[in-house]
Design a protein around this nucleic acid. Structure first.
Lengths: 242, 242
DNA sequence: CGGAAGTTTGAATTCGATCAAGATGGGTGG
DNA sequence: CCACCCATCTTGATCGAATTCAAACTTCCG
């Protein structure tokens, strides 16, 4: 496990704006103190820093306060598949709660500078599985992850470049909006075109052509880390049909 | 839910050769009677029959005694993504145990004539989650499904046709061998080339060219529902490199 | 025996990859 | 504050893998 940066004590779980959207949201509601007590502190990661290496055993999990991360598999020849992005409110290493002390299948890296709340996997398990009814809430999140993977598989297997990119943008916008981080379709968008390509099975060059094309068509606009969906209807149509 | 064919009473869970490999294997070992009592009967499905429609709520789950099935998503225009194949010993609708009474994300269809043992989702949940320690065994199966999807996503996103097909054949052979259904690399192989294509994001025409090529190279052989891996080493190399 | 479904092969096309080079822009050190 | 540098974005040209369209052949089943 990569050594996180030194921990601070700040931000109060009880009043955390992300709280209700997290995996332990229900726990937080019933006994806010429990979460605050379980939290080991705050860890920061540099952009591009590895949080968890493939094959390592996750002893901590991290709820993102700000920034993006992603999980990926890297083949021996360097090709990389990004499997999911983690946004504020998401918990990294959720799988390790399900299957603690199992070697990670995927690596996790910070996409931007990252601020996270750190929990021991053991503590989090107790928190989630100990209390009555929390298990179900957690299962819901696991089921949603499976649903995400299903959709991603369908996108990559069935759709061509434009459709994949459109689906991707819609999915990200939706998640960000739920987290209160998208207004009027505009949001901070830190991933490089290479990240998008690695997530969608395309080259960064082709991602660029696709994005530029969508921009020319007036469906989206983007520049320096900002993305804006101008025409949701058109984007949804493109996502469905192409 | 599609009406299954009339139920019989036959085959004894206690001595079922598939038992140990099923999701409820541990339960079976500790209290064989419990499984036999929970089983509602045996259901048969015709080849190509729909077992569960997308959006429906699964009230039963089915452990395959013989035959293959698959889960898929069908787009409005008819394109189809196969997400997983179910082989003898596999349980269909495992996800519905995790998340009971949730509309199914994917449809499930019989690929061949199918014989299955039927259980109520509610009964199966009690069986699996009630007993101490079973929960973990079940989680393991769920984790393996996630691992499968991760690998599948990586294959489709990163590999070209030959590599995808090779990975697919190795994965299927491995699963069948564990179930005692592959000997010396030879096994019954009912899927049509169209099914393989729909699973791997390729057209059936290209799957054909790829398979024929592997056959010409002496890596595999196949005809009328039988597949044989002749050169595992070569197939593994192809699976890794291409 | 006839027909339907699946397999196989060929030819033309297209989507996206690859290779290459220039433009842009933020960050750093002088 | 400016100059330079590096990463990223962008665009062009060419290439190649897989699709599409089409047709013949094979197998299986009623």
């Amino acid at each position: 496990m990569t050594k996180p940066a030194p921990l601070d004590r700040e931000l109060d779980c009880t009043h955390c704006p992300l709280g209700p959207n997290t995996a332990y949201g229900p726990v937080l509601r019933k006994s806010p103190g429990a979460v605050a007590r379980a939290r080991k502190g705050i860890a920061r990661f540099r952009s591009n820093q590895t949080i968890l290496r493939s094959g390592e055993i996750a002893l901590s999990c991290y709820t993102i306060v700000s920034g993006w991360a992603f999980s990926c598999i890297v083949l021996p020849d360097g090709r990389r598949q990004i499997l999911s992005f983690f946004l504020p409110g998401d918990t990294i290493s959720l799988f390790s709660l399900h299957q603690p002390y199992r070697p990670a299948l995927t690596a996790v890296k910070a996409l931007t500078p990252l601020t996270t709340c750190v929990f021991d996997v053991a503590d989090m398990r107790e928190l989630l599985f100990g209390a009555q009814g929390q298990r179900a809430a957690f299962d819901t999140i696991a089921a949603e992850r499976i649903a995400d993977m299903t959709r991603q598989l369908t996108d990559i297997g069935l759709r061509r470049a434009t459709g994949r990119v459109a689906q991707f943008l819609l999915a990200i916008e939706d998640r960000l909006r739920r987290a209160g981080l998208s207004e009027g379709g505009a949001f901070d968008f830190p991933p490089r075109q290479g990240h998008i390509g690695d997530a969608l099975g395309l080259t960064h060059v082709h991602v660029n052509r696709t994005l530029v094309d969508l921009r020319r068509r007036g469906v989206i606009d983007f520049s320096k880390g900002r993305m804006r969906v101008i025409d949701f209807t058109a984007l949804r149509r493109i996502a469905e049909e192409e």
